[in-house]
C-alpha cells in the first residue's frame, strides 16, 4: 500500500517556482532519501509533505487520505507524521523523557512509561530520561530527536538532514543504527540529505532533485549504474565522461567499443558522452590502450589515480595501495564493465 503519494506537486515562493511537477510513491515500511545539492528544493519538498508548505498545484496523499492540494493543507498535527529536524529542535525546557513522550497522547501513564523505556533501550540511552538536552552530546541528542519523532508511531517519519552536524565517522555509524531502528519499527520514512553515501546507507529508494525537479526516483543500484541524466550520474558517485560515438555494437570511445547498458534511443553516428566510474577500469599490461598517470591520492586502502588517455581525456581509477605506480608511468588500461551508460552531448 502506498503510504505517500505525490502527484505533480508544484510549490512557488512568491512567483518563483521552487518545486516543479514532483511525483513519487512510497510504500509501507520503505525508507526514501531525497538527495540533491543545497537549494535544489529537497527541504521544501519535505516541508510540503509535513504540511508547513502550501502547494501551488498538485496533490499529496497518504493512502486514501488527501493531505495537501492547492487549496487545502491538512494541519501538520493531523497528518500523523514524525519529523527529525536538522538541528534536532529538542525542547530545552523539558527532560529527555518529557521530550520523547511529548507527542504521545491519549495513553495511560504506564503505557507511556513502557514506550519510553522501549525507545530509550532502542536508542541506547537507558537512564538518560531525567537529563536535559544540553547535557547530552550531539549524537545522543540526535537519537533522542529520533525517538521523540517515533514515539507516537507516526505513519510517516520525515528526517531533515539529520546528520549534517555530525562528523563523518559518527554519520555512517548513526546512519546504520538509525536505519536498523527504523526497519525494526517498520516506519516509513523520508530523509533529506545532500550526501550520497548517507542516501546509499539508509535508503530503499532515492530521489535526486535538481533545481526543483525530481530527476530520478529509483533504488541505489539503479541510480548508481543507470543514472538517467549526467547530473544524477555525477551527483551520486565519482564519474568521468568520455566522448563517444554510437556505433552498431554500442558506443565507441577512447577505451574502445562497449555495449550500451540499455536500449537507449540513439541514432547511429550520434555523438554522446559515456559514463566511466573508477571501478569500471582495470590495469591490463596487454591492453593496447595506454594512459599516463598524472596524479594520485592516498586513500588508506586505495590510491585514487588520475590517468590521461591518448585522446587527452582523463579518467579516475581506484587501485589497492599495496601496488604502487609512480607519477609519469604509462600503463595499459582495460574496461571491466560490460555495459556503459551514455548521455547526449551538450
Amino acid at each position: 500500500m502506498s503510504v505517500l503519494t505525490l502527484d505533480k506537486v508544484c510549490v512557488a515562493f512568491d512567483s518563483k517556482r521552487v518545486l516543479e511537477d514532483i511525483s513519487l510513491r512510497l510504500d509501507d515500511g520503505e525508507i526514501a532519501c531525497l538527495l540533491g545539492p543545497s537549494g535544489c528544493g529537497k527541504t521544501t519538498l519535505l516541508r510540503s509533505i509535513a504540511g508547513f508548505q502550501v502547494l501551488q498545484s498538485g496533490e499529496i496523499h497518504s493512502g486514501a487520505t488527501v493531505l495537501s492540494t492547492s487549496n487545502f493543507t491538512a494541519p501538520t498535527e493531523n497528518r500523523q507524521i514524525g519529523m527529525v529536524f536538522q538541528d534536532f529542535a529538542l525542547f530545552p525546557h523539558l527532560t529527555i523523557g518529557d521530550n520523547i513522550c511529548f507527542g504521545i497522547r491519549h495513553q495511560s501513564k504506564s503505557d507511556k512509561r513502557q514506550r519510553l523505556a522501549e525507545l530509550l533501550e532502542l536508542i541506547g540511552l537507558v537512564g538518560f530520561d531525567g537529563r536535559y538536552p544540553h547535557e547530552l552530546s550531539g549524537g545522543q541528542q540526535q537519537r533522542v530527536a529520533l525517538a521523540r519523532a517515533m514515539a507516537s508511531k507516526p505513519r510517516l517519519l520525515l528526517l531533515d538532514e539529520p546528520f549534517s552536524s555530525m562528523d563523518v565517522e559518527l554519520r555512517s555509524s548513526l546512519a546504520k543504527e538509525i536505519r536498523s531502528i527504523l526497519k525494526h519499527e517498520g516506519i516509513t520514512s523520508v530523509m533529506v540529505t545532500h550526501d550520497q553515501h548517507e542516501a546509499f546507507n539508509m535508503a530503499d529508494r532515492i530521489g535526486v532533485l535538481s533545481a526543483g525537479k525530481l530527476l530520478q526516483w529509483d533504488d541505489a543500484q539503479t541510480l548508481y549504474h543507470q543514472p538517467k541524466t549526467a547530473f544524477v550520474a555525477h551527483f551520486v558517485g565519482r564519474s568521468d565522461f568520455l566522448q563517444g560515438e554510437i556505433v552498431e555494437q554500442g558506443v565507441k570511445t577512447a577505451l574502445g567499443v562497449s555495449p550500451l547498458r540499455e536500449q537507449q534511443a540513439f541514432k547511429l553516428g550520434q555523438q554522446v558522452n559515456a559514463l566511466i566510474r573508477p571501478e569500471y577500469l582495470k590495469i591490463d599490461k596487454q591492453s593496447p590502450i595506454k594512459a599516463a598517470l598524472i596524479s594520485r591520492q592516498f586513500r588508506g586502502g586505495f590510491y585514487l589515480y588520475v590517468l590521461r588517455l591518448t585522446s587527452g581525456e582523463s579518467v579516475q581509477l581506484l587501485l589497492s595501495s599495496l601496488m604502487q605506480y609512480e607519477l609519469g608511468d604509462t600503463v595499459g588500461l582495460a574496461l571491466s564493465a560490460e555495459h556503459l551508460s551514455v548521455f547526449e552531448s551538450e
Binding site: A50, F52, E77, G82, M83, A89, H93, R148
Partner: peptide
C-alpha cells in the same frame, strides 16, 4: 524549528503555544 517540531508531534498551533512557546 522547535515550534514546528511540536506541530509534527500532534500539537495544534494553540497547543504548541501552550506546551512549547510559553514554557
Amino acid at each position: 524549528a522547535v515550534l514546528e517540531a511540536s506541530r509534527t508531534l500532534g500539537c495544534t498551533p494553540f497547543q504548541g503555544f501552550q506546551r512549547v512557546a510559553l514554557p
